[in-house]
Amino acid sequence: MALPIYADLNIPYQSAGSIQEVLDLCVDVGFERVAINNVVKNLQSGKNKKQAAKPQILPPTQILLNKSSTDALKAQRPKFQQLSRFTTILDDAANTHRLGSPEVQAYDIIAVQPTDEKTFQLACSTLDVDIICLNFTENLGFSLKRPLIKLAIKRGIHFEISYSPALKDNSVKRNIISNALTLISVSRGKGVIISSAAEKPIDVRSPWDVMNLGKLFGLNQTQAKDAISRNCRAVLKHAEARKTCKTVISVTAASNLRPDERWILQTSRTEAISQQKSITQDNPESSSEEDSSDDSEDNENMDSENVHDQPERKKLKLDVS
């Protein structure tokens, strides 16, 4: 059985240096999938549109670490993966249409933080998001109702509990534990993810510590493990499905294939080659030397990193609006 991939889907975005420190420790203690979280508090400008301009949203490439630093982390954990996450605070039910804009949709994961009952209902029932995170550091001010949460879970949305604020203040700790207990008793342990929200390396705890913390919140052993492994994977799958609509087949560019998916190219190429050969056998006039030389070049390129640089390979791209 494959080992679970532990994920921490909330590392707040800061300067590259400090985020590097946090990620180093995350990888060190056992996390393999990490999402860097860009929190934009106000998605829409206020009522005085002249005064406040629309807040700028950084593209995900800017908040992610560059390739040289991720390669260093990959040397430690080969399956290491960094993701981008966008979080906004919902304080008005009317301010949601910008969630569908391309600069927000460019992020891997989209999360919202409802602040009152109205926005919570909206997020659970209609909004197209992956994660609902609630401000557990203080009294929520509204009750979490079973039907709404059930609906959200049915739609594949997960609820997030962040533990690192609990490390700083005792009253905050009490609030987080009590709110988490409520959420888990209402959701019956399903559809919950636990993340760190660690701004400093000292706030990061190991996956096994987090699992034990989940048990304190009222999850059982399996649910606690799922909260940092399987449910996080489900969030990613949900995010992927959000981008491609309902689908059984999706077409991606050959350059976007992960190294462990390259076999698809390999098999499709060998099929193509065998087809080509059968054609050349049929037509002995066509030059077979060119084909063979091309093949050897291609195979060399296949092993190296830049598969997408080959001009011969046909790139397919499907834009799903």
Binding site: V29, Y163, A166, L167, K168, K173, K200, I202, D203, V204, R205, S206, D209, V210, N212, L213
Partner: peptide, 15 residues
């Protein structure tokens, strides 16, 4: 796990 700072105010972490 939830212990975050020592009595002298320094951040600490049990893992």
């Amino acid at each position: 796990t939830l212990y975050g700072s020592t009595p002298s105010g320094k951040r600490c972490a049990f893992r």
